[in-house]
Simulated scan of single mutants.
Amino acid sequence: MKLLTLDDLEKKASQRIEKSVFDFWQSGAGDLSTLKENRNAFSRYKIIGRTMVDVSRLDTSPKNELFGKKFRAPIGVAPSSHHTLASPRGELATAGACENTKVPIGLSSYSNYSGAEVKDAAPNSAVFFQLYVFKNRKVSEQLVRRAEQAGYKAILLTSDTPYLGQRYADARNNFRLPRNVRLGNFEDLDDGKGNKIKIPHPVEQKKGDSQTASNVIDPSLNWAETIPWLKSITNMQIWAKGIICGEDAQLAIDAGIDGIWVSNHGGRQLDETLPTIEALQDVVDAVKGRVPVHLDGGVRTGADIFKALAIGADFVWVGRPALWGLACNGQKGVEKMLEILIKDLSITMGLAGTPSVADISRKSIVRFGPRYSKL
């Protein structure tokens, strides 16, 4: 089977991975409405083909630098957990693919390899460390300090997970992580009093478990308190991931956020919420260029990336496709996935008459079909 598209990678990965693990990757919250809409909503935007434009030289590099670097394309691998379920080298392979392809990667708190190990594998590409804030702030503080010491550029605060979404596939499969799975970032952490701690993955948290009660994700996070606290413990930039409306974008900027990441957690949290491509314009218009705006959710083609850039995203990220690539062929599989996207973006740019990413604008697309409106 020739692997020409990300759908091809998905199909091949599904044949290689145990069903409960594949369901863990693929499933979303509730009736999967948001999961499906993340993908389907891109089809409501169409690209205007332009002719007789000199596109003999195509420049896919982002219009703006990211942390002082000019990456190859405005494409990155978003944080996702437990890459060793796809391939033994896990996040090391994913990060190595990003380094070789010259695109960035964000590392999950729940990676199987530590932030330092991944940074060593991808010194130029590993830039974001995704953070969950736990009730025991000493735990989160240790994670932040380790990320800064390892050389990460920004904390990517996950703001949309005060509680875990209803993920029925995991419940039906009674999904549990294999006992030999490492949690690289949580090794040798303590509770601030010298006592070693146990951090459960959110899918395995149990109510009433006294051993882990203070080491679960904190539902009390808020702009007024959380962002100043993070800024007090690190010199890294603080970005907010999980923003899907202009109101929250404004609050984030007021709180001192350095960047905004439009995301609905891949449809795994609040079901029946906005698909990210539909939320993007509201966020971009509220931000008014004051901070960078990035996006993930349902991105599968170069055309999807083009549409997000046209609306105003500075960078576009993929999550599940990296796992599919890993499952298909380890690091080379992730490199294949990224090359498919970059090639597809390049061809789309050429046929749309946009020689560079800077030439892509809202004039490059049209929208049709129903549009959401505030009541």
Rank of each mutant, 00 (worst) to 15 (best):
Glu99Met: 09
Thr101Trp: 00
Pro104Cys: 11
Ile105Asn: 06
Gly106Cys: 07
Leu107Ile: 15
Leu107Cys: 03
Ser108Gly: 05
Tyr113Val: 06
Tyr113Phe: 15
Ser114Met: 10
Glu117Met: 11
Ala122His: 04
Asn124Ser: 15
Asn124Val: 12
Ser125Gly: 00
Phe128Ile: 11
Gln130Thr: 04
Gln130Ser: 02
Leu131Glu: 03
Leu131His: 08
Tyr132Phe: 05
Phe134Gln: 00
Arg137Ile: 14
Arg137Gly: 12
Lys138Cys: 04
Glu141Val: 12
Leu143Gly: 00
Glu148Pro: 10
Tyr152Cys: 05
Leu157Gly: 04
Leu157Ser: 00
Leu157Arg: 07
Thr158Ala: 09
Ser159Pro: 03
Thr161Asn: 12
Pro162Tyr: 08
Tyr163Lys: 12
Gln166Lys: 14
Arg176Pro: 08
Pro178Lys: 07
Pro178Arg: 01
Arg179Asp: 08
Asn180Phe: 12
Asn180Met: 06
Asn180Gly: 00
Val181Lys: 05
Gly184Asp: 06
Phe186Tyr: 12
Phe186Asp: 03
Phe186Arg: 00
Phe186His: 06
Asp190Trp: 14
Lys193His: 13
Gly194Val: 13
Lys196Cys: 07
Ile197Pro: 04
Lys198Met: 11
Lys198Pro: 00
Lys198Gln: 06
Ile199Gln: 01
Pro200Ala: 04
His201Met: 07
His201Leu: 06
Pro202Phe: 02
Glu204Pro: 01
Lys206Thr: 10
Asp209Val: 04
Gln211Glu: 13
Val216Gly: 01
Pro219Glu: 13
Asn222Trp: 12
Trp223Met: 12
